[in-house]
Amino acid sequence: MTTVYDFTVKMTNGEEKRLKQYQGKPLIIVNTASKCGLTPQFKGLQELYEKYKGQGLEVLGFPCDQFNNQEFDNIEETTQFCQLNYGVSFPIFAKIDVNGENTDPLFAFLKEQKKGLLSKNIKWNFTKFLVDQNGHVVERYAPTTDPLKMENDLVRILN
């Protein structure tokens, strides 16, 4: 059975990283954007990361420019923006597509595992997926869901 750990993603420097390195850890995987009305969610994602990283949590951010061009062209600007404005210390990966013919394979898998309310497509920036320690997608959260509202579900899979 395929899990999140079977995928490889691109880092900001173009190198590939196997998600197998996160095996045994719960993950929050999110498509992000730096110039979006929902961008302050970086704060909540960082709070969860800091609070639970000692228990293995990893937050993985994937910048996406598919929704009204709300991401910087230069990935270095993206990472600097996240660090300077929100103190982001969790990994930010290379910019990807989450919908359409160039959908990143990881996000194609995530969408198949947990469809949205009306379709499997991602509606906007900051769609969040909670993945358990076995690499299975356990929940999908709408872009408008505050990351801190995910905490109860996160704690449940940590225990």
Rank of each mutant, 00 (worst) to 15 (best):
L158W: 00
R156W: 01
I28F: 11
L27M: 12
Y22A: 05
D104A: 06
Q70I: 00
E112F: 05
L118I: 04
N69Y: 08
Y52M: 13
G56A: 10
K43M: 07
F107S: 05
F81Q: 03
N152T: 10
V9T: 08
D104Q: 11
P143S: 10
D6F: 01
S34Y: 08
Q21W: 00
Q66L: 10
G24W: 03
K10Q: 15
L148T: 06
P40F: 08
H136V: 13
F72V: 02
K115Y: 02
D153M: 07
C36I: 00
T2Y: 11
T144A: 12
Q133P: 02
Q66I: 09
S89Y: 02
V137I: 13
K120V: 00
E77S: 12
V137H: 11
A108Y: 15
V137Q: 14
Q83V: 10
Q113T: 07
P63F: 09
K51G: 13
L158T: 09
K17S: 04
L110W: 09
E16R: 01
E112V: 01
S89L: 09
F81A: 06
Q66P: 04
M1Q: 13
T12E: 08
P147L: 06
Y52W: 03
T39L: 08
N125P: 09
V131D: 03
F62Q: 02
F129P: 02
F42G: 15
A142F: 13
Q55C: 06
P143K: 08
V155W: 00
N74Y: 04
P26H: 11
G56Y: 14
K128S: 05
